[in-house]
Design a protein around this nucleic acid. Structure first.
Lengths: 337, 337
DNA sequence: GTGAAAGCGCTAACAA
DNA sequence: TTGTTAGCGCTTTCAC
């Protein structure tokens, strides 16, 4: 069947030509009126609009993209949509982008580096720019995506190439501050629940923890980035007898907190607990979570800004680092005894 | 500048023609080899593939769509990505669709009926089918989207049109079961935290609550669908002195639970609490949440199946209703005294 | 099994 | 200000 037989319902959809003949003008004029910007007399303009309305004309996006080379959309690839940290970042991208008329399409990589690559690679076909959030894929794959020609901005992943922008969180300082806070409270034996191995943000945190020297005796326990991960690993953590637990993130900490509550272990009197990110729940939870706060929506907005500049043909990589600062809440206190 | 001056980096991207001349064949042959399906001699096939590889050729998706009329993608519009209920449904759509080679693009409507419409309308340009999850937009807008020509499947929103499929949850039965459960425990004075007004699923729940007769004395308090909403409204709820609280959803109930914990009010000994949906957290939380369980991923998978059938030109509306059944956990008990 | 030519729907160049 | 013409990159007749 010719031309993919249009979409579902029987009748052929009207094209510029149909509108043009209905309004007794040229297709070019129709395009000029509907796309805007070009000078058209008021009279023709009205005729065209009326005809378009009457026929229920809608421009074919594929044709527009083919000729203009622009989609008017950007894409965001995230490791896990259920994680509040990422929904906040996404919200930042979306509100910034949509306020400038750019639509945001999202793909969830489902915590899987392979999905991440294929998702990004396929999404790149429908957008002008791509924001990859905490990507874990290897550098070569990032390069391959950049080769595609999409503008590329990375969040929480450094990448030294002129054609790629980055927004980073200062996890090192944030984690150091948390560690010093615990140390100052008198903690020595602490457990760190590690996030996804291979993630840059995870490496930064570990680096900070190694940096604290012998003030703190840190046991690192592989965990993951989900709430369920934190919940599941808590029993094992307790076997190490820490007086404080540093979770990879607030989201993980919430899982830990839940498990501790189930076990009748009280925070912070029995054990102190910290998170990272300062997600909305962190303030709500009882006790409030001591954490490192990060302006998540700003991260998203910054990524959008860099992407927009790049899509505007401004070359040269930009890199921004966003601070993470300590927030003391009820979940940390002096160790018992 | 002609042709949207290609994408970023300087050199023009190779086209079928470039590959064709590099491989000394016709563009037609290149297309046949790369798109697959058509008979091509092994030798030419290899030559084409080699040339394409060497030039780094990537077909222009816009051109493919223009000529074929197909995108190979579907879209999902959700009210709120941060809500675990929706992330689960999304997961169901995504895994079903991607296992059949269809990519899923997501748009977050941010709990706003206007965003919902514009988001869906714009997303419709890049996909063959659309899943709208719990849409709150008026019927006319749904019709307008269907007029676009996209295949349309709705979740949690009935819509009597041959061209639209639906997947519904039996909220009525689920809510009735929760109410009967509380009644059987001996509760009389209960509070219901209402979800988004105008949402079909909200109406069903209220209908069920009205149906329980005078066994239960229900105070309805407007709340919303977010965890923060539940947290914020709890104090007001308590002024009504209920022995049990029925939250719109688990997500809302979690907010309530957090606030109750902060206030030192114990669940279920001081007050019973129920949710709806059975999100993963509901089982994890302490105490576990009594709720109505719904197979969320199955909902997503069903929506995909219906959409796939429709995109396959199978006409006639399908409608499926998924059950919601009571799950007793620790958050409900006999009222004190 | 292969190629030449036409055309998808739109917008940009060029002329009038 | 408007129309004519050409062409975006691809797939698909249709003829060989």
């Amino acid at each position: 069947m010719k031309n993919g037989d249009r979409r579902a319902s029987g009748r052929r959809r009207p094209t510029v030509h149909d509108v043009a003949s209905a309004a007794a003008v040229s297709p070019t004029t129709v395009s000029r009126v509907l796309a805007g910007g070009k000078p058209v007399s008021h009279e023709l303009s009205e005729r065209v609009r009326a005809a378009a309305e009457r026929l229920g004309y809608r421009p074919n996006p594929a044709a527009q993209v083919l000729v203009s080379g622009r989609h008017g959309t950007i894409g965001v690839v995230l490791p896990d949509l259920a994680n509040p940290y990422f929904s906040e970042v996404l919200k930042g991208v979306t509100s910034a982008a949509s306020s400038e008329g750019t639509q945001v399409l999202v793909v969830d990589a489902d915590e899987d580096a392979a999905h991440e690559y294929t998702g990004a690679e396929r999404l790149a076909r429908w957008v002008d720019g791509l924001v990859l959030c905490s990507p874990r894929m290897p550098d070569e794959q990032l390069s391959a995506i950049a080769d595609t020609g999409v503008a590329l901005a990375l969040i929480n992943r450094p990448f030294k190439q002129r054609r790629v922008d980055t927004v980073l969180v200062d996890y090192y300082s944030g984690m150091s501050a948390l560690a010093r806070h615990l140390s100052a409270l008198g903690h020595h034996r602490v457990a760190y629940l590690a996030g996804p191995s291979g993630a840059w943000s995870e490496q930064q945190r570990e680096r900070a923890l190694h940096g604290v020297g012998r003030d703190l005796d840190v046991v690192t326990i592989p965990c993951g980035s989900g709430m369920a991960d934190g919940h599941a690993v808590t029993d094992e953590v307790l076997t190490h007898g820490p007086t404080a637990i540093l979770a990879f993130s607030d989201y993980v900490a919430l899982g830990v907190l839940t498990r501790l509550t189930e076990l009748g272990i009280s925070v912070p009197s029995d054990v102190s607990l910290t998170g990272f990110d300062d997600i909305p729940l962190a303030a709500i939870a009882g006790p409030g979570l001591t954490t490192a706060t990060v302006r998540k929506q700003e991260i998203g907005a910054l990524a959008w800004r860099q992407l927009a500049a790049r899509m505007d043909r401004q070359r040269g990589a930009r890199s921004t680092t966003v601070p993470a600062t300590l927030v003391r809440r009820g979940s940390t206190a002096r160790p018992a005894g």
